[in-house]
């Protein structure tokens, strides 16, 4: 939803990364209603949750809206939160970016900071120093480093040396969901990646945007390739 206009917007960078880096066929999933989730999942071998300018509604973690000027998307919440719980139940490959990471944490019972930049000790994670405007190279510029947790599944893909990432988010994980694991932290302590302990297969959620420079960034390439491999495994198992 954009205000009262019902539309689904999908930035090319997401499906380009799925097609060109993961080697999979991207199928957009419109928020038609939770009753359709299984029908969509039957068509797919993996699920990627994209980022969005709209925040996860704070009602889902028991808070009031902190800044009413920021966009919300209750239609997406109503689709993705049950979708995540179902994907976890099935053990289907799951890659989540930015809002997607926040959705996973909320769907599984965690909570979010609504404005990370206002949390004492945390930096401003909104990109371009919080100036308004979207989708500019300045906003998606390298922002800070992250370090993958040694022995974790993110580290298994990208290693546990610090890498530099972009940062385009106002919300961020506060209380980690009980079944989620921290996979990476920013230097200021903000959780930058998680996986799901109760998920039987590939699950990885990233607070940054690997799709932005997917073709030119080795870390992004490794991440999408790993997700694509998990989807191909799922497809092979499904075919048997």
């Amino acid at each position: 939803m954009f205000g009262d206009v019902p539309m689904v917007v999908l930035y090319n960078r997401y499906f380009d990364a799925i097609r060109d880096q993961a080697g999979c066929l991207p199928i957009p999933l419109p928020c038609t209603g939770a009753e359709d989730i299984d029908a969509y999942l039957a068509l797919a071998d993996g699920v990627m949750l994209t980022g969005s300018p709209a925040n996860v509604h704070p009602s889902h973690f028991g808070q009031d809206v902190h800044d009413p000027s920021l966009p919300l998307d209750p239609l997406r919440d109503a689709m993705t939160l049950p979708l995540i719980r179902r994907v976890v139940e099935l053990g289907m490959p799951l890659l989540a970016i930015c809002r997607g990471l926040q959705e996973i944490n909320v769907a599984l019972g965690g909570s979010l900071h609504q404005a990370v930049q206002e949390v004492p000790g945390r930096g401003d994670h909104r990109g371009a120093k919080g100036k308004p405007g979207a989708l500019t190279p300045e906003r998606y510029a390298d922002a800070h480093s992250i370090t993958a947790t040694a022995g974790g599944c993110l580290a298994a893909i990208i290693g546990s040396e610090p890498v530099t990432v972009n940062s385009v988010h106002g919300q961020g994980i506060d209380q980690l969901a009980p079944t989620a694991r921290t996979e990476a932290l920013a230097p200021d302590g903000q959780i930058e990646a998680i996986s799901i302990a109760s998920h039987a297969g590939f699950s990885l959620a990233l607070q940054w945007h690997p799709e932005w420079q997917a073709g030119d960034n080795l870390v992004s390439q490794k991440l999408f390739f790993a997700f694509g491999s998990a989807c191909r495994d799922w497809q092979a198992r499904r075919a048997r």
Partner: peptide, 14 residues
């Protein structure tokens, strides 16, 4: 009743 119904109603209004 749910998000899907709101989407349907908004689509009819449009």
């Amino acid at each position: 009743v749910d998000a899907g119904q709101m989407r349907t109603v908004i689509s009819y209004i449009e």
